[in-house]
């Protein structure tokens, strides 16, 4: 954000705790000091309000970044995002552009229970007019966010709440690396089974893949990075090679991008499949708080490992 805000003074950042507090996760550290309170705006507690303010400001040429303290609170702004940001360009037949980024932490953090733990991708990927990004690595987070800020469509940017502490190389300013929206990455090469994932469960999948390698199963991991548009080509290429697939995600099992990916594979790679595709998902319940329960709601290494063994018909 810092780099983009230096390049383009139309970029403004709005949200709760983004200014003086420097972000609930310190994501906006130093921004108020550098850009002042006209461009880094602490808002009253009204997500629908500042989402609408952002959409209005975008119509006249600002490029707002709207931060939700967490995506859980975006539901208050659902109407503005779904009914307005996503459709204004279409409804006005191109007369009103809404270049806006909605971003914030997504998914379960540790022990924040039912109303604070949503992985919201299933809600927003459903909506035509929105792009949806869900990076897992620091490098992708940076490159994709730059792409999102420069894109003229409204973008939903999901930052895994448990991933803020992950360290990794990111390119320098001069490199100006842009990761295109809608391009998946082969994060680990393998021959025996494909794991398709994104966001926090990417790390669970990586760990499971290491354990499976010990058992002689080499997994290929596809990190989707964006969920709308979906890069099915990269997924299909991998599945045609491995002939087996497990989709791992945090959101509830019923519908959503996880099911969408399975649908795409069965349609375009049916003849390559040696086993039914399995999914490892969050359990179909509101998130409980107690550690022993929460651990068993989220996709675990053990569950991923087991699912991969199942598609490989191994004990």
């Amino acid at each position: 954000m810092l780099e983009e805000m230096r390049l383009d003074e139309n970029i403004v950042l709005m949200g709760e705790e983004v200014g003086y507090y420097q972000g609930a996760y310190k994501v906006t550290q130093g921004l108020l000091e550098e850009f002042g309170s006209d461009r880094v705006v602490d808002t009253p507690i009204a997500e629908a309000g500042f989402a609408g303010i952002g959409i209005g400001a975008a119509m006249v040429g600002l490029r707002p970044i709207i931060e939700f303290m967490t995506w859980n609170f975006s539901f208050v702004a659902f109407d503005q995002i779904v009914q307005n940001a996503a459709k204004l360009y279409q409804m006005s037949a191109g007369q009103l552009q809404v270049p806006i980024v909605f971003r914030g932490p997504n998914g379960a953090a540790k022990q924040v229970s039912s109303q604070h733990s949503h992985a919201v991708e299933a809600f927003y990927t459903h909506v035509p007019g929105l792009w949806v990004c869900a990076p897992a690595t620091p490098r992708d987070a940076k490159g994709l966010l730059k792409a999102a800020i420069r894109d003229n469509n409204p973008v939903i940017f999901l930052e895994g709440e448990t991933l803020y502490g992950i360290k990794g190389e990111v390119p320098e300013v001069e490199e100006d690396e842009i990761i295109p929206i809608g391009k998946a990455a082969v994060a680990r090469e393998g021959t025996d089974a494909t794991i398709v994932t994104w966001g926090s469960p990417y790390y669970t999948s990586l760990a499971a893949a290491e354990r499976l390698a010990g058992a002689g199963i080499e997994c290929e991991i596809i990190d989707m990075r964006s969920l709308r548009p979906l890069d099915m080509e990269t997924v299909l290429q991998s599945v045609r090679k491995t002939n087996r697939c497990v989709v791992v995600h945090e959101h509830w099992p019923y519908a959503g991008p996880g099911a969408e990916i399975v649908d795409g594979i069965q349609r375009d790679a049916m003849d390559h499949l040696d086993a039914p595709i399995l999914r490892v998902t969050g359990q179909d319940v509101p998130m409980p708080y107690a550690t022993n329960l929460e651990e068993n709601v989220l996709p675990t290494e053990a569950r991923v490992e087991e699912a991969v063994k199942q598609v490989c018909y191994r004990q």
Binding site: Q111, V112, S113, S114, H116, P286, P288, Y289, A290, T291, L293
Partner: peptide, 12 residues
């Protein structure tokens, strides 16, 4: 959030 919790360990 133990077994005796009135909301069964579901809430913060």
């Amino acid at each position: 959030a133990n077994a005796n919790d009135i909301v069964k360990g579901r809430q913060m």
